[in-house]
Amino acid sequence: MSNHQHASLESEAGLGSYTAYTTGFILSLILTIGAYLAVTENLLSGNILVTAVIGLAILQLFVQMFFFLHLGRESKPRWNLVAFIFMVMVVFIVVIGSLWIMNNLDYHNHLTPSEQDSYMHTRNNEGF
């Protein structure tokens, strides 16, 4: 049965094929279980663990975008890919930007309330 599907659909590259979906599924399974075990079995720790786990998620993003959503396998004016790349840029700005601003705010907030008052007063006298 699977051979029949395989043969009839392999030519329709744009629509994906049985092999593409199965490959994507197996790779996703491996990446998911790998990330899970890295955390639960304490294979790594600290920042290395966080970086590794996020790296595996990004790898799985590409696997599923390619094998399940057929990204980058469309015919020439690749608008889907262009829209995707633009979206990645926006997401990057929103997420990294928020974290940057809020951490900076948090850093300034390490003052006690009276320290904060005097800080605000000096800033006010200097003129914002």
């Binding site: 599907q5 009839s8 659909l9 329709e12 629509l15 994906g16 094929s17 049985y18 979906y21 199965t22 994507g24 599924f25 996703s28 399974l29 998911t32 599923q64 399940f68």
Partner: peptide, 16 residues
């Protein structure tokens, strides 16, 4: 994850 895979198989069936 499995449901994502089976929906892909569903699409292959639809094209057939």
């Amino acid at each position: 994850l499995t449901s994502s895979y089976t929906s892909g198989l569903g699409i292959l069936a639809a094209h057939r």
